[in-house]
Lab assay of single mutants.
Amino acid sequence: FDIYVVTADYLPLGAEQDAITLREGQYVEVLDAAHPLRWLVRTKPTKSSPSRQGWVSPAYLDRRL
Results as ranks from 00 to 15, higher is better:
Q53D: 05
K44S: 09
P50G: 07
S48N: 14
T21L: 11
S51C: 04
A8Q: 13
L22F: 04
A19E: 12
R38P: 00
A59G: 07
T7N: 12
D9A: 07
R42A: 06
S49I: 11
V5R: 12
S57Q: 05
P58S: 08
T46V: 06
S57D: 15
G54S: 03
T7S: 07
V56N: 00
D32W: 11
H35Y: 08
S51I: 10
P58R: 04
L61T: 00
I20H: 03
A59F: 10
R42T: 03
L11G: 08
E29S: 05
D2L: 13
R64Y: 15
R38T: 05
Q53L: 10
E24C: 09
G25N: 03
Y60L: 07
Y10H: 07
Q53E: 13
K47F: 10
P36R: 04
V28G: 00
A19K: 07
Y10A: 03
R42P: 00
A59M: 12
P45V: 05
P45Y: 05
T7L: 14
T43L: 08
K44D: 05
R64M: 15
I3Q: 07
S49R: 09
K44M: 15
R52I: 15
W55G: 01
K47E: 14
Q26D: 15
G14F: 12
Y60A: 05
S49H: 12
T43N: 02
V6M: 03
W39C: 02
P12H: 07
A8K: 15
D2T: 10
D18Y: 09
A19P: 07
E29I: 13
L31V: 08
F1M: 10
L31A: 01
L40R: 03
F1S: 08
H35G: 10
A15N: 15
P50Q: 07
Y27G: 03
F1G: 11
A59C: 07
R52N: 07
V5D: 01
L31N: 00
V6P: 00
P12M: 04
R64T: 13
H35F: 07
T21Y: 13
D18V: 04
I3D: 06
P58E: 02
P12Y: 07
P50C: 05
Y4V: 03
R23L: 12
L11P: 15
F1T: 09
K47N: 14
L40Q: 03
D18K: 05
Y10K: 03
G14I: 13
P58T: 05
A34L: 09
E16V: 08
Q26E: 15
L13I: 11
A15R: 02
D32F: 08
W39S: 00
V28F: 02
A15Y: 14
S48G: 15
S48H: 14
Q17I: 14
A19R: 08
P45H: 07
R38Q: 07
P50M: 06
V5Y: 12
A8V: 09
S49F: 11
A8Y: 07
Y27Q: 10
R64L: 15
A34W: 07
Q17W: 13
Q17D: 13
R52S: 10
W55Y: 11
R63I: 13
G25W: 02
V28D: 00
A8W: 05
Y10M: 04
Y4F: 10
Y27E: 14
R23K: 13
F1E: 07
Q26T: 12
P58M: 04
D18R: 04
R64V: 15
P36A: 08
P45F: 04
Q17L: 13
A8E: 08
V6A: 07
S57N: 15
D2E: 13
Y60S: 04
V41R: 01
A8C: 07
T21R: 11
L40M: 05
P12E: 07
L31M: 08
A8T: 10
T46A: 06
D9S: 06
F1Q: 08
F1H: 11
F1V: 09
L37P: 04
P58W: 03
A33W: 08
I20M: 08
V6Q: 00
Q17Y: 12
Y60F: 12
Q26Y: 03
L22S: 00
I3F: 09
R64F: 15
R23E: 10
G25E: 01
G14M: 12
D2V: 11
Y4L: 03
L61H: 01
E29K: 05
W39Q: 00
L13C: 10
R63E: 08
E24P: 11
P36M: 05
D62Y: 09
T21Q: 13
E24Q: 14
W39N: 00
G25Y: 03
R23T: 11
I3E: 08
S57W: 03
E16N: 09
H35N: 15
V6G: 00
L40F: 10
K47P: 13
Q17R: 11
L40T: 01
V30S: 01
L40Y: 11
S57T: 04
S51F: 06
R63S: 09
R63Y: 13
E16K: 05
A19I: 07
A15P: 11
G54W: 05
T7R: 10
Y10V: 10
Q53Y: 11
I20K: 02
P12C: 06
V41H: 01
Q53N: 05
A8G: 07
T7C: 06
D62R: 13
I3G: 04
R38E: 04
E29Q: 10
Y60G: 05
S51Y: 06
I3A: 05
L65A: 13
Q17G: 10
I20Q: 03
V41P: 00
E16Q: 09
L31S: 01
D2R: 10
I20E: 03
A34T: 15
T43E: 03
Q26V: 07
A8M: 14
R23D: 06
Y27A: 05
L65D: 14
